[in-house]
Amino acid sequence: MRPFTYERASSPAAAAEAVRRTPDARFIAGGTNLLDLMKLEIETPVHLVDVNGLKLDSVEPTPEGGLRIGALVRNTDLAADPRVRRDYGVLSRALLAGASGQLRNKATTAGNLLQRTRCPYFYDTNQPCNKRRPGSGCAAIGGFSRQLAVIGGSDTCIATHPSDMAVAMRVLDATVETVKPDGATRIIPIVDFHRLPDDTPHIETALEHGELITAVTLPKPAGGAQIYRKVRDRASYAFALVSVAAIVQPDGSGRVALGGVAPKPWRAEDAEAEMPRGAKAVAARLLADAKPTHDNAFKLPLVERTLGAVLAEAKG
C-alpha cells in the first residue's frame, strides 16, 4: 500500500509544527473529504496529523458580542447551537443545506472551509488538472462545465468551491484564527482566506504550510432576515448550482454572497449598495465580470431570479 505515518497532536502549535516538518503532511479532522481523495490517490499525504484531540470543539461568546467557533466543532453541532440558530440563522441554514446528516456529524468547521472542489476533471486522474497536477492543463475548460464557475475563474481553472457553510461565513464577515508552527497566531478575514486561481489554482487558501485553523469567529449579530437558498437538481445531497446567502435589513439594505458560481464564496460589497434597487441591479454588479461557458450560462439568470426570490422572502 501507499504508506503514511500518523500521529495525534498534543497542542495546536505542535500540530502545526508536525505538518511543517513534513512537506507532504496533512491535518486530519473529520476526514470526510480527505479520506475520499486519498482513496482516489488525488491526495497522497505521507504523514497525517490528527487534530481531533485538540479540544477545539466549543462555541464560546466573544467579548465583542460574537461567537468563537472552535475549528473542530462538527457541522451538526454548529447548526443546532441555539445561539447560532437565534443570531446567525443564515449559517445554520447553510450548514443544513450541505451534505447529509451522516457527513455533517463528522465534518468540522475548519475542514468545511478547506474542502476541495468537486470538479469532475479534478477527480479523474487520467485528465489534466492544474489544481491536481500544476501545469498539466485544465480539461474542464471546453469540457463539461455545468457545475463550474461563471466568475472568478482563470485560464487555468474554472473550479467552484463546493461549501455552503463558507458562503454564510462570508456574508457574516467571519474571521479565521490560525496558529503557525512557531506558535504565532494570526487572524485572516474570510474575504482573504480563499484565493482565486489565477495561474496557481493548486494554492487555494491563504494558509501557509503547517498553519492550522483553530477557530472561526463571528462578529456580533447582524440582525435582519437571514436566508440561505440553495438551488439544485435534486432535493437533497447535491452540490449547489447556485446558492444565495443573504442578510436583509428592514430598510432593504443588507449583504449578499453567492455559492456555486466561483472558486470562492462570491461577494461584492459594492453590489450591496444596490440592494434597495432590487435583485436585477445587485446581480448585475455581482456578476459584472462573469465569463460563463455554454454549459453554465444559465447560472446568471438563475442568480438573479434566486436573489429576487430571497429578497421577496425577506420582505415577508
Binding site: R118, F144, A235, S236, A238, F239
Partner: peptide
C-alpha cells in the same frame, strides 16, 4: 462520460 461517480451522476434521494 465525465460524471462517473455517484456525486456527479445524480439519482433521486428520499427527499425527491
Amino acid at each position: 462520460f465525465v460524471n462517473h461517480d455517484l456525486a456527479g451522476y445524480e439519482v433521486p434521494v428520499h427527499a425527491d
